[in-house]
Design a protein around this nucleic acid. Structure first.
Lengths: 196, 196
DNA sequence: GTCTATAGACAGATAGAC
DNA sequence: GTCTATCTGTCTATAGAC
């Protein structure tokens, strides 16, 4: 497709989103102004509105696309597979996905309260679908006698909190590399469900 | 001490702090205006500055007092005691303390980035002192051969993330009461460190 | 101790030139 | 597609009356 020089909308759009993501993660949605975002991309403030109808939609769009990707890339449910293998795969996926997208993970959790009620309901429903997938794995393992779990719902929340916490302390180039982190978390998760 | 009628500074001060806490937790520091806080207490906006020099100090003061109380009430280190009992006590304390102060816990984590660098350093140091107490318990248990832990530092962070997560889902009057929650978390923690 | 008024900066969003 | 100018409203913090 020929495109005249100076038409950069298909590159500027992503740059606006990337700048918004970075700034929202760093300073928080409410503390970041449209002018700051525009400045980061090298635009005037008015030009931003070519790429988003308003600031709220910009935030929602980032969070929504993130949750959608999370649900799409999550290994498909395989009820016939070994629960222990499924749990290991879930933990490994969760860690990798989160370590690869620290800013998105951060705003998806921290900026929930800055969504309009309608937008919040959408994101919240997607988050519950994700949690349900882990809950189902724990249920299957419990039924198969492979796990010993006192409370499946609480354990689901506890494991997700534990795994997501990796983003609060992991720093690239630190004492542990990703494979090391994955292995230790896998170990913790398996022990917590009584699979070791 | 006699006090003339109409002088309410010693009751208004705490009410200002309570209102700020509630609003910061609900909407976020950056999204809450001094006018909102004043309105909640039934004051004009100007009167707030009798109780805090500025908005930032109000936030810092809430977080600082919270962290101080956390460190004060934490069961004293008892290196001669059984590591398993110490770990159980830590987990029970953490859960109770956090369930009793959901708003304070929430802002102490969510509003870190809205602190000035100097204030941030103070709070961060207090947080690390708290984490070090758990780390020391895990170390002692590992040395005594009571725990089997692959990485003490990572496990410290993982356990704290798991325990703190209770605030994201626990609701008074729900399916589980506090004692039930405490028991299940204790179980998860002990299994994760290989003490069961 | 609290109010009202206000200073001075900055917010989100829009209009129209180019 | 982007800029500049601007509308309209809000913000923190202060000053001075009572």
């Amino acid at each position: 497709m020929a495109r005249r020089q100076g038409s950069h909308s298909d590159i500027t759009g992503p740059r606006v989103r990337a700048a918004a993501l970075r700034l929202f993660a760093r300073h928080g949605y409410a503390a970041v102004s449209m002018r700051q975002i525009a400045g980061e991309v090298g635009l005037g403030a008015g030009a931003l509105y070519l790429y988003t109808p308003d600031k709220q939609t910009l935030l929602f769009s980032l969070m929504h696309d993130h949750m959608q990707e999370l649900l799409e890339k999550l290994p498909a449910a395989a009820p016939d597979q070994d629960p222990r293998a499924r749990l290991e795969a879930f933990a490994r996926f969760h860690i990798r996905f989160h370590l690869d997208r620290p800013d998105l993970v951060f705003i998806a959790y921290m900026e929930l309260r800055n969504l309009t009620p309608e937008n919040f309901a959408v994101i919240e429903a997607m988050r519950r679908r994700y949690e349900a997938r882990l809950e189902e794995i724990l249920c299957a393992g419990e039924l198969a006698g492979e796990f010993r779990i006192r409370d499946v719902k609480l354990t689901t929340m506890a494991l997700i909190a534990m795994l997501t916490g990796v983003n609060t302390w992991f720093r690239e180039g630190g004492r542990l590399d990703r494979e090391g982190v994955e292995a230790i978390y896998r170990d913790l998760v398996l022990k917590a469900v009584g699979a070791e």
